[in-house]
Amino acid sequence: MWSKKGRIEDLIFWKGNMEVEAYEYDEGNAGKKFIEGIKEGKFYGIKCSSGKVYVPPRDYCPEDMTEGNYVELTEPYLDLLTEVREDSYGNKLEKPIKVGIIRFLNAKGGIIVRVEGDAKEGDKVKVIKWEWPLVVGKA
């Protein structure tokens, strides 16, 4: 007989905060260019000698380890869309948050964004707020 009750109310939990120190993370050259681009209201990627474009940009092209050239990307589209209804503790959110991934035609990679309005997967989108997290809406 399995005497497990399985009810979360019957369990004892210890909750707390781990003592963790602040850290500094270097975004690298390409990361810096990308962040600067966002501040200017632009998306930068890199174009490699193979013709492939990567977004966000990388420091090196994965095919031949050469440095690519920065290119500006335009006309993002919403590739994936999902809705967050609970916070990480299982509490119901007052208003669901829409989260999606935007991509660009002929470019590899994507950017995770907040989505406002009724944009659907496949729709062309425009950036409403050029700050983190990026907020996009139907173009």
């Binding site: 497990k4 009750k5 399985g6 019957d10 369990l11 004892i12 939990f13 210890w14 909750k15 707390g16 905060n17 781990m18 963790v20 120190e21 602040a22 850290y23 500094e24 993370y25 270097d26 975004e27």
Partner: peptide
């Protein structure tokens, strides 16, 4: 440079058996 302090919350459960024991 990105400076960040992680908010590392935890919730550790005593589990099925030890919760009954502690109660």
């Amino acid at each position: 440079m990105i400076r960040y302090v992680p908010k590392a919350k935890y919730s550790y459960s005593a589990g099925q058996a030890q919760s009954v024991f502690l109660n």
